[in-house]
Amino acid sequence: MLVQQRKRMAFWLILPTLLLIVAFKIAPIAEGVVVSFQAQSMMRPNPDAFVGWTHYKRAIFEEGVFGAALWRTIVWTVGSVAGAYIVGLSIALLLNREFAGRTLFRALFLIPWVIPEVATALLWKWSYGDEFGVINFLLMRLGVLETPILFLSSPGAAMASVIVVQIWKLYPIMFITLLAALQSVPRELHESAEIDGATVWQRFVYVTFPYIRPTSVIITLLAAIWTFQNFDIIYLLTGGGPADATKILPTLVYEKGFWGLELGYASAISLLMLLCMTVLSVTYLLVYRAQREET
């Protein structure tokens, strides 16, 4: 009797959460699918008219915008995640020892993670400036550069510049999770490897890395998912420009939907994007599982 009562109570306890999540996260996906097959252009009458695969064909074949943006999104994601992993792991290895002040350094290195996206983008934009930007100023003062680099306004440099910002935003989460993982490495193993004459690199590859590999895979996957869908940083830094050099899928979706006012078309692109994300993460997980079974 009491058990039955508890179970009925559980239903009422989760109901509000369930309603909110279904209404704002699940139902919109379904709505998005419907919309992607409708005209839904604010410039044309009859938004609900069914147009079949028109938007999808247009995105993939006729305008070809999807493929190009997908490629840029992959460059952006791989560059940012790889960079953040290397920076994060290096800092984690440095802090993986006992010393006074370790907690302080740990907190300081985490700070970029809590800086709001809009502040992050704007402070980097200010630092990247050509005439009054501090980075160009320092590089010229040190004699590295003769003329300022147009970090954000030259098509050749823009992608690398936005990737640096994302690396800066992303490395803290990498370093804090990797630092926790490093603490699971048994010290005796290290000592015996050292006695056997293993070099620092060999010790890292054969002793340390196997212990942090599961964490590495998970955090890399998560970081890739966040970066793949990240909108704020690129939108605020370059708006997808110059000359489309940084137009990744999220900024493309926004541009088509809210500048072009073609919600149906934008919705089709966003669904293609979700498909890519799903394919990526499923592949990744399968690779991970296969690796685990091998060892």
Binding site: I21, F24, K25, I26, P28, I29, E31, G32, V35, Q40, I225, F228, Q229, F231, L249, P250, V253, Y254, G257, F258, L263, A266, S267, S270, L271, M273, L274, M277
Partner: peptide
Amino acid sequence: AQMFPQIMLVIPLFIV
């Protein structure tokens, strides 16, 4: 629900 990107949901949510 945690996995769905915001950029994907923004269009249908805007319509709603």
